[in-house]
């Protein structure tokens, strides 16, 4: 297990390095550079040359990547050439918004999905077919469109929840929660049906195994068979799904933050894209990649916790 984690950590570190290098190279290969972005449309060649040198843009790209990496490892992701703001600080101030959304939506999806999936595995039949249809609908509906429909219904027609904005948790927990209802619902709704369907399939597979028959035949309670044995054996696919859901929702926040005008990382990425603010968007990519890597690592740890065979490996 320890060796497994060590190897995973190593691969994860490499991965973040590769992703950052790729985005760096992409940016370097692009027409136009940061100096030109800062100077705008009208500038003198002398001013351009000076800034170009000041920013270190005349050095070879790998040297520049080395500088960037050295700073990034100390938590310094550079400065936005457009706003002049510190990228790390901007990301730090926006991270809570995106985390509230993704963690909230992942938790909602997983809890509702597991509950409904177990229920339909035990009760069977019609509920399962309903999930098939809903999962298909969730797959097909663009989440920004769903968000707009929810806003129309529950913020405009029936003003139950705010249509836009984000209230920090430490300022007003009630307002924070109310503001999250619609965006979290938007993010969670499509995934819940998929989650329920997959949980159901995993539960049915677990319930059809020999040990379930043996436990039943020897008088174990149905409750224990479902919750202690089948659910736990269905745990590995379910945990995989939690990780995938989180990663999927991370991308989903880009749209949902735009609809609900929430000051999160997705919004930052969109704004930076519009302004060709490469250092900022690069910072967001790094943070997203770190999040993906962390979630995958957490999933690996969870497998070990669930499966004694992995634990002793």
């Amino acid at each position: 297990m320890t060796r497994l984690i060590a190897r995973r950590l190593l691969v994860s570190g490499l991965l973040v390095g590769v992703v950052s290098l790729l985005t760096f190279l992409l940016q370097a290969a692009a027409p136009g550079d940061t100096a030109r972005t800062i100077l705008g449309d009208h500038y003198s060649p002398a001013a351009y040359a000076r800034l170009h040198r000041e920013l270190g843009l005349d050095e070879p790209v790998l040297t520049r990547y080395g500088h960037w990496l050295a700073h990034a490892l100390r938590g310094d992701l550079g400065t936005s050439p457009v706003s002049g703001l510190d990228v790390t600080a901007q990301i730090a101030s926006r991270l809570p918004v995106t985390l509230s959304l993704t963690v909230g939506a992942t938790a909602a999806t997983a809890l509702a999905g597991v509950a409904l999936g177990v229920l339909s595995a035990v009760r069977g039949g019609r509920l399962g077919r309903a999930f098939d249809v809903l999962a298909l609908a969730g797959y097909a509906l663009p989440n920004f469109w769903l968000a707009l429909v929810l806003v129309t219904l529950f913020a405009v027609t029936f003003p139950l929840f705010p249509a836009t904005g984000y209230v920090p948790l430490e300022d007003d927990p009630g307002g924070w929660a109310r503001g999250l209802v619609l965006p979290v619902t938007t993010l969670a709704l499509p995934g819940t049906a998929v989650f329920a369907k997959q949980t159901r399939d995993a539960m049915l597979a677990a319930l059809s195994r020999d040990f379930v028959t043996a436990l039943r035949a020897n008088g174990a309670s149905e409750r224990s068979i479902v919750l202690r044995h089948a659910l736990r054996n269905a745990g590995v696919p379910v945990v995989t799904l939690v990780g995938l859901t989180f990663i999927g929702l991370l991308s989903g926040t880009v749209f949902v933050e735009a609809v609900f005008a929430m000051p999160g990382l997705g919004g930052l990425a969109v704004q930076a894209t519009g302004q060709h603010d490469v250092p900022t968007i690069q910072g967001v990519v790094i943070v997203f990649t770190l999040a993906v890597v962390t979630v995958n690592l957490a999933a690996d740890l969870a497998y070990g916790w669930l499966d004694p065979k992995v634990r002793s490996a």
Binding site: V11, L14, L15, V18, V19, T23, L26, Q27, A29, A30, I247, L250, S251, V254, G266, A269, V270, A272, T273, Q275, H276, D277, V278, I281, Q282, V284, V285, F288, T289, V292, V293, N296
Partner: peptide, 21 residues
């Protein structure tokens, strides 16, 4: 492919957008 599967598609696409317009 292992590496690429862990790349967040949408934000990386935004990087491309930021660069190529």
């Amino acid at each position: 492919t292992d590496v690429m599967l862990a790349i967040p598609v949408l934000v990386t696409l935004l990087v491309v957008l930021a660069v190529v317009g």
